[in-house]
Nucleic acid binder design. Structure first.
Lengths: 347, 347
DNA sequence: ACGCAAATTGACAGCGCTGTCAATGGCTGC
DNA sequence: GCAGCCATTGACAGCGCTGTCAATTTGCGT
């Protein structure tokens, strides 16, 4: 049979309850006692039985990460970060893919909770901003932390200063001499889309360039939507000299469409993305983009949640720094005006 | 307070133990009784308490998915499939990234097990073939199922007929008239690399084309290694007219390098990959590749494991079908010989 | 040295379920 | 109709831990 708490107690010459106190890092245990117990635990290689702990304390020591996001790279980074934080405090994590637009979305989350009883939830975009869910969680007292939520009021988790990142990207383009800069908006349900657009507009304004609605087209964060958006842009009578796409996948789509239209990148048109996902280095030319520390963000969001769950405070909304990664897809504005050709076929 | 098993028992007019029997689908409960209990459960919306079940039965109703794989797309598919299967039988899943080459790899798995006590493990490549781990799991009686293991003897889980898929890809290239076909091998620790190479060689042999070692270069499944491999191939005095890369990322690297060397794809050289990951549609030209039903494979592997855990049999090694996806990156062999130029710069 | 509050420790009864084993009921063959 | 046997059901004692609350010890002021 494996070592139980009772065995540790006997070895340390204290009561089981005291061992339990040490295990749970409770206050009001004398330093000397604490050390004795810790030593006994280590010597016997004691591992508390999670189910027994859960049953007695009515907590599961588990958090659930909820997602509805097509970007597996982003998610796996977040997930890894969350696991980092969980390991730190001996929590476990479950993951749950959901359809945020499903009729029974909130109900499904409710079922998840009643089945698996996580102590708290980690929400990722776009679930972070599903009002129905947030209300339900509030009403039912379910603790949660968010990664990059739109609404920052009374929310704990992690965010990045997205508008500032977008402005920094715009400054890079403006610095290269670009004035006719297009923007491909992301999926409307994601807060990131709005912030990045806001940064784009603010930078234009600051640079004294009038906002031109025909240079701003909607996408949905997918490669295909980038292609579609770019086709619109490249069919304008006066082409943009730079395209700022709200994420890397769409930027890749823009580059694809540029090639398809006989436009060289960055010769004829500069293209940049956002997120620094692997695709940014897997295409040619490699994408200029903004690096988001996703794993770190997952970790921090989870730590905020765990602070709450462990009764270590209220948790807060932490803001993390970003990095502009300048690669080959952006370059100086070139003098003559480029012309798009119809569509290139087989070559 | 929530509904407990005892409440259901009272409502159904039976003993708690009988409700437990129905809950666990045990034999030797009269049909009528079973129905009464089921009705009461449904009426009261009863959810068994996982920790209580675990504590009493000494099972966790949880499986752990172990991975050390850089491809988040592949993994997230597998993970989703595993979750599908878990949901079906009310199991939960935890995920664990690991470094298969770490000194303490097996020890870490042992710690994972003693901490979280999963009932079984799901192994993904390349962990599926870590002999040290497999031995340890065997010695300690830990049930596991594998996704695409190399060794198929006495292993349960799921595989695909990879050599046959590779042969089918080769037949596609041969059918397009290619004779000088190169192969970029995958990471040596993955069984897939060997199988795909084997299929390549078998097809050449069958077509009566001698094996040319200079056309076979090693990669490691990464984009960068595809670029490096392609540079070697494109520096040969006689270029290959087609390159069969062992996965999509490397194929994308080959296409990148082709562009970099002034070679048109598929005009000068056809390129194909394997796995049908999103990148295959995110590059231009879109990749001809082999689609592996990863999600389904995750689901099936997990179902085999659950069969064992639930005492429903021994589990087996299931083989799933693949699909050849012909896209734009492969085309007929062209007559004249292409010449690579040194390296293209800014354009 | 003494009294008192605060800090520390322990006794005990579950948490909600299942394993074990005994008790009951129903059915068989003669 | 009855012994014998299997199918079905239930009683009960935990599984390994923590919450509650009471008992004990410690520290401090005077």
């Amino acid at each position: 049979m494996r070592v139980r708490l009772e065995d540790v107690a006997r070895a340390a010459g204290v009561s089981p309850k005291t061992v339990s106190r040490v295990l749970n890092e409770e206050a009001n245990v004398r330093q000397l006692t604490r050390e004795k117990v810790r030593a006994a635990m280590a010597a016997m290689d004691y591992r508390p039985h999670p189910s027994a702990r859960s049953l007695a304390s009515n907590r599961s020591f588990m958090v659930a990460t909820l997602y509805d996001n097509p970007s597996s790279n982003y998610l796996s980074e977040i997930q890894t970060g969350v696991l980092d934080a969980c390991d730190l405090h001996h929590y476990s994590m479950m993951v749950r893919p959901l359809l945020v637009n499903a009729e029974d979305f909130v109900e499904r989350v409710a079922m998840l909770i009643s089945h698996h009883r996580p102590d708290g939830l980690l929400l990722t975009p776009p679930i972070t901003d599903h009002q129905g869910l947030l209300k339900w969680l509030g009403d039912n007292g379910v603790p949660y932390a968010s990664v990059s939520p739109i609404a920052r009021h009374r929310t704990i988790g992690v965010t990045m200063d997205e508008p500032r990142a977008a402005r920094e990207m715009m400054e890079h383009l403006l610095g290269l001499g670009h004035r006719r800069i297009a923007h491909v908006i992301g999926h409307p349900a994601h807060g990131a889309s709005g912030w990045r657009l806001a940064g784009y507009r603010e930078s234009l304004e600051k640079a004294g360039i009038p906002y031109n609605p025909s240079l701003v087209v909607e996408g949905d964060f997918s490669f295909g939507s980038g292609v579609t958006a770019a086709r619109k842009l490249f069919s304008l009578s006066e082409l943009p000299t730079a395209v700022f796409a709200a994420n890397d996948d769409m930027a890749a789509g823009v580059i694809w469409a540029a090639g398809d239209n006989g436009l060289a990148v960055p010769g004829d048109v500069s293209v940049c993305g956002f997120d620094d996902t692997p695709i940014s280095r897997q295409i040619w030319p490699a994408l200029t983009t903004i690096r988001q520390p996703s794993r770190e963000m997952g970790r921090i969001a989870c730590l905020q949640l765990l602070d709450v769950l462990r009764g270590r405070g209220e948790g807060e909304l932490v803001q993390v720094p970003f990095t502009l990664k300048v690669r080959e897809s952006t370059g100086p504005r070139r003098q003559g005006q480029a012309r798009a050709r119809q569509r290139r076929s087989g070559d």
